[in-house]
Design a protein around this nucleic acid. Structure first.
Ligand SMILES: [Mn+2]
Ligand SMILES: [Mn+2]
Ligand SMILES: [Zn+2]
Ligand SMILES: [Zn+2]
Lengths: 141, 141
DNA sequence: TCTATAATCGAAAACGATTTTCAACTAAAC
DNA sequence: GTTTAGTTGAAAATCGTTTTCGATTATAGA
């Protein structure tokens, strides 16, 4: 669990450590799936019942700035947050339980760059995300 | 310009052809970049000044149902619409002028499927988008 | 061409997610 | 301890989108 490191990083940026923040940080750091602000609020309130939804928004904003979480786009919505991977990685998401796993895709950069050339673009960045069914969810059928 | 075909398709689904709809359809059919509902409203009003924003929302909804347009996700927002490509294609978007170009990526399916296997996922779908700078915008510097 | 009718329209109200304001509270530096 | 700037949650404001509604109109059928 990396939530200790997250708190250290927040602290090192001059942010104070409060119970409200700790609850949000620990919720995000341990979640296997992307969470909306409302999700975070519901989950983190179990640890700190007085938590306000506003504080969830404010904390997620800081965590995103520090690259500790990233926004995840999905068919159902684009306002969910997930613990960030180290470096540049892509997501594989279970359409059933929403569990998210990171993978590398360095092998693709040449292909992307070729596509760019073909259309007279200089490719600077890309978004890649895979959707499927994880082993656990497959079994449940 | 495919806007005639779009109107035929709308008509064939039982929808009526109105000036308001024609303005939205023609705006979308000819745009080289993804447009937000507000963008569409601004542009289409030049052709039909009485156009209401509500009608833009309602028409985009129908066009999406008919797969004539698709929603495009970008850093700045996820509520922009673009003329749909034939079949399954991916987008290459200019970060400067927002011009969007489609490309195929059939070559990638094996890679995606392998990534899935490695993590015990059955991959069902994927989402890929490239960002860069187009030739025209490159020149302007 | 005329009529009947259900689809469509835009204005205004409602809605829901997010952001801002604000006065009370508190973590942390000294 | 005391001080103070950062943080809090409640409430109000904002903003994009959807719903409601009465007026208008495209279109099928006479
Ligand atoms: Mn990559
Ligand atoms: Mn593909
Ligand atoms: Zn799963
Ligand atoms: Zn999105």
């Amino acid at each position: 669990m990396s939530s200790e490191n997250w708190l250290v990083k927040l602290r090192s940026q001059g942010y104070r450590l409060t119970d409200a923040r700790r609850a949000v940080v620990e919720t995000m750091a341990q979640s296997p799936r992307a969470l909306t602000p409302a999700d975070v609020h519901d989950l983190a309130k179990e640890q700190y019942p007085a938590l306000g939804l506003v504080t969830v928004y404010r904390t997620l904003e800081k965590l995103e700035e520090l690259h500790l979480v990233q926004r995840v786009h999905q068919e159902q919505g684009c306002n969910a947050y997930l613990a960030h991977a180290d470096g540049h990685q892509h997501l594989l998401i279970c359409e059933s339980c929403k569990k998210a796993v990171y993978f590398e895709g360095d092998d693709l950069d040449d292909f992307f760059s070729d596509v760019g050339k073909k259309h007279n673009f200089t490719v600077k960045d890309h978004w890649l995300q895979l959707f499927g069914i994880c082993e656990d969810c497959e079994k449940e059928k």
